[in-house]
Amino acid sequence: MDGRLIYLMGPSGSGKDSLIDAAREPLRALGCDVVRRVITRSAESVGEEAVGVTPQEFEQRRSAGDFALSWQANGLSYGIPVQIDQWLQSGRHVLVNGSRGHLAEALQRYPTLLPVLLTVRDDVLRERLFRRGRETLAQIDARLARNALFVAGDAVGDAPVHRLDNSGALADTVARLLAWVRLSAAPDRT
Rank of each mutant, 00 (worst) to 15 (best):
D123R: 13
V94A: 00
L118E: 01
C32K: 02
L27D: 04
A155M: 10
D141G: 02
R100V: 04
V46A: 12
A175P: 09
V46T: 11
S167E: 05
I39W: 06
W87P: 01
A138W: 05
Q83A: 05
S42Q: 08
A29S: 03
D165M: 00
R4I: 11
A179V: 03
T119Q: 07
L117S: 08
A152G: 12
V96E: 06
R61N: 02
S70Y: 10
S70P: 05
R163A: 09
D66L: 08
M1H: 01
P11W: 14
V38M: 06
A171V: 06
G13E: 03
I80A: 14
G52H: 05
L177Y: 03
L95D: 11
V46M: 13
L69I: 10
T173C: 11
R100N: 15
S70Q: 08
G3S: 07
V94F: 04
Q108C: 12
L144K: 09
T119P: 01
T173D: 07
A152H: 15
R182G: 10
P55N: 12
R146F: 09
L8R: 00
L103G: 01
V34S: 12
G13T: 08
V34Q: 09
G153A: 10
T119N: 01
A68I: 02
G75W: 12
T136E: 01
D2Q: 11
L137C: 04
G15R: 10
H102F: 10
I140Y: 05
G47M: 05
S45K: 06
R37D: 03
S42K: 04
R92D: 11
G101K: 14
V120T: 13
S12K: 10
A138L: 06
G133Y: 00
R36T: 02
G65Q: 01
N74F: 12
H93I: 06
N147L: 09
A23F: 13
S99Y: 12
D21Y: 07
D17V: 04
I39Y: 09
R131A: 12
P111Q: 03
Y7F: 15
P111H: 00
A148Y: 03
H93T: 08
S45L: 05
E127G: 08
E127R: 12
R24F: 05
A148E: 03
F150V: 15
G101D: 15
A29P: 05
N74T: 04
G47C: 08
I6Q: 09
A186N: 06
S184Y: 07
G157H: 11
P115Q: 08
P115R: 09
I84D: 14
D188R: 10
R163E: 02
A148K: 06
L113F: 13
I84F: 07
G168I: 08
P26N: 08
S184R: 15
G98Y: 01
H93C: 13
R109A: 13
D66G: 04
L118I: 00
I140E: 02
V151E: 14
D122T: 03
V181C: 15
R100K: 14
I39C: 01
R126Q: 01
V151I: 13
F150M: 13
A138H: 00
A68M: 11
E48W: 10
T136H: 00
G168R: 05
V46K: 12
G75R: 10
R182S: 15
D123T: 07
